[in-house]
Design a protein around this nucleic acid. Structure first.
Lengths: 239, 239
DNA sequence: CGTGCCCTTAAGAAAGCCTTAAGATGAGTC
DNA sequence: GACTCATCTTAAGGCTTTCTTAAGGGCACG
């Protein structure tokens, strides 16, 4: 697929030679590139022009790659690739744990970076294997899965990680009834299959935040004895 | 139905003892098994013979289980079960996040692996290749199995879990007579095989809700001495 | 008549769901 | 390392719905 819209990649590294190397290679591969040489500048860039993917070095003065990953994850689920120096082996796990999507060890092959970037973008953009929607629009309730943002009546809603996960499960099967055990298994893990109490607490929390009248649910409907369902008035899951 | 096609499971672990242990148990349970001892080999195997499910170890040299999961998810939505060492507690959540379906902590009970595998396959296979209809449309009576909704004359009908289960059994064999013992066994469990009283009570409840004239049943017909049958006028079972 | 099967009814027991709140946990900050 | 804050976990009470159980009535068939 051609770049109908250019794909913007933000590259962050304190080493200007690497910055240039990556830029050249990515641009030759058809990407548009923004660069930043430290964490603070990266966040500013991120706000100014939200990129479609981020490549960042782990070891940087000031905000390091891990912290930066975490910060970005607070506001976006954009694909992130970490560049780790060799020997930082143990840290790669940490990187993935806190939300990075992939990593490369330096020195790295620029072509491999391009390949991984493409693979990531394919997954997140087209939803390659699954056909998961990127957003959901149900009357007062809007969910942007890419940015991890939820809006209720035009106002942004602040959800905790667990709340978001739960809502996401509901939203990705909008209209269908999801058995309690499935929700518990997907959000908390298979061994929580029978812990319905967790659901009650978190369903309530969600209702408080995204229901016009929390004690008279319009969106999050319980199907007693079975599970929950996210009601969508008429419409559709966006592009 | 017989194993028209054997279910193929790809098992990936760098420990050959575990590989053998799992292979033996899965084969005894009727699965066909492919194995690989590292990530790269696994991907090659995957391409050569796409399996119906994947079991993989998290900690492996080279491509670890997480990365492998992600790679596989880029091209397929097969069920994936992760094997995590004890103490990798925090990572299990990540495993589910990136697309695994279940996990077991080592040391694990081979029987449990088989059980979880079956559960996963039941869910995914039934959905895709599914033989079961998604809806039933019989004159005044409409059933949407996905949304778990029943309509009678355009009005939504509220059913209790047990009522729904019973109606579902009838509807999925619409037109055919189902023996009492079968219904009891499917809805309440095998040990209720002889408790016809339950049926009478719940059949009546259903008739009250979905029959034009409950005392003159048109849909739920009893076949004295055998069982019950859901009558469909000319009838279609939807897509 | 008497027996077996099915229908109807209703009341106590049980389960499911909602709500609340307090303690534990963990990440971020200084 | 101690402090702070948000989040998660856990437990308990109340309310509503659903399930279970038992008993009585009709109807057909011998």
């Amino acid at each position: 697929m051609q770049p109908k819209t250019n794909t913007l990649v933000l590259v962050v590294d304190d080493d200007s030679r690497i910055l240039r190397l990556v830029r050249v290679n990515l641009e030759r591969a058809g990407f548009e590139v923004d660069t930043a040489s430290n964490g603070v500048a990266a966040l500013e860039q991120f706000d100014a022009r939200p990129p479609d993917a981020v490549v960042l070095d782990v070891t940087m003065p000031g905000l390091d790659g891990f912290t930066l990953t975490r910060r970005i994850r607070e506001i976006s689920s954009v694909p992130i690739i970490l560049l780790t120096a060799i020997g930082e082996q143990s840290q790669k796990v940490k990187g993935l744990d806190i939300g990075a999507d992939d990593y490369l060890t330096k020195p790295f092959d620029p072509d491999e970076l391009v390949a991984r970037l493409r693979a990531l973008l394919r997954r997140t953009q087209a939803g390659s294997s699954g056909e998961e929607a990127h957003s959901l629009d149900a009357g007062d309730l809007k969910i942007d899965f890419v940015r991890r943002k939820v809006e209720f009546r035009g106002e942004p809603v602040k959800l905790t990680p667990t709340e978001y996960k739960l809502l996401q499960q509901l939203a990705q099967n909008a209209g269908k009834v999801i058995p309690n055990a499935d929700l518990l298994s997907k959000v908390w893990g298979p061994e929580y299959r029978d812990e319905s109490g967790y659901l009650w607490v978190y369903i309530r929390a969600l209702r408080q935040k995204i229901e016009p009248d929390p004690s008279n649910p319009q969106y999050i409907i319980s199907e007693p004895g079975f599970g929950y369902r996210l009601q969508v008035p008429k419409s559709e899951t966006g592009s």
